[in-house]
Amino acid sequence: MQGFIQQVLNALQVGSVYALIALGYTMVYGIIRLINFAHGDIFMVSTYVAFFVGTALASYLLGLSGLLLFVLTLIASMFATSLLAVLIERFAYKPLRYAPRVSAVITALGVGLFLENFTLATIGPDPRFLPRFFTVQTYTVGGVAFSNIQMIIIVVSALVMLVLDTVVRRTMVGMAMRAVSWDKFTAPLMGVPVDRIISITFAIGASIAAVGGCLYGMVYTIDPYMGIRIGWWAFISAVVGGIGNIRGAMLGGYILGFVEIFTPVILPASSYRDFVAFSILLMLLIFRPYGILGRPVAQKV
């Protein structure tokens, strides 16, 4: 039982990161019906920004407390990543907004590969560590061990998701986003600045991915190709939950977290987890293509 709770905590930790990235996929899909395959690599870039900013701050401003350092790094990473996402949208996706959907999807794939290979060519393939913002403390409650880092990841992710959910449901920007998602031709007639709302969506999606990136970087190493695996898992999360549905993406992220942690427990060969995840995706797409929380779209003839 203790082992089980331990694994649940691990699954929540991994699932939080997936959920944060899945939100970016699902928001962009919801608003312009584009699978933004570059999103995983935007996440990767965010961890590199965090790496450089964090390392620089840690070496130049020695006296800073870990928390302040972390917050500054997080803000810098969120800002830089949103800027990147908005630029990508402006220069790569916007010209294709009314082109066949396939063109935009291929462009997104291309942008993702470009970011990966560009990072590889400029920074190199070596794995890197983010500076340690917090000293790791491990607590044991009733035989279940958990660290402060783990708690930070789970709690911060949950907070970010709560804020996002509130923004989308309760603010004017959120209402405008839902309006564009509902009907992008009528929304401008109602005075919604569509271009700006799309940019904002990309910026929000990317900054949430940056939060995920900074949290992820506190535990794992980073490298130019990390965006592929994490990005795909997050993407599957978004599809499992019902792409375009924000609460679906959160649910999907946690589900995939559980798949990742519990697959090695059930199937001893741990490398089967990709196989399991993608098989779930395939089955789901065949039997329930609109995801768990999504609604089927009726096709008009």
């Binding site: 396939v102 089967y272 990709d274 196989f275």
Partner: peptide, 28 residues
């Protein structure tokens, strides 16, 4: 067979998942 029911984006995901599954199976 999935292409009977899904088109466009979702079929693209199916083919992609297929590529990943093949790679994953071969690795194992």
């Amino acid at each position: 067979i999935p292409s009977f029911r899904t088109r466009g984006d979702y079929l693209a995901i199916v083919t992609l998942a297929w590529n990943m599954i093949v790679k994953s199976v071969l690795e194992n």
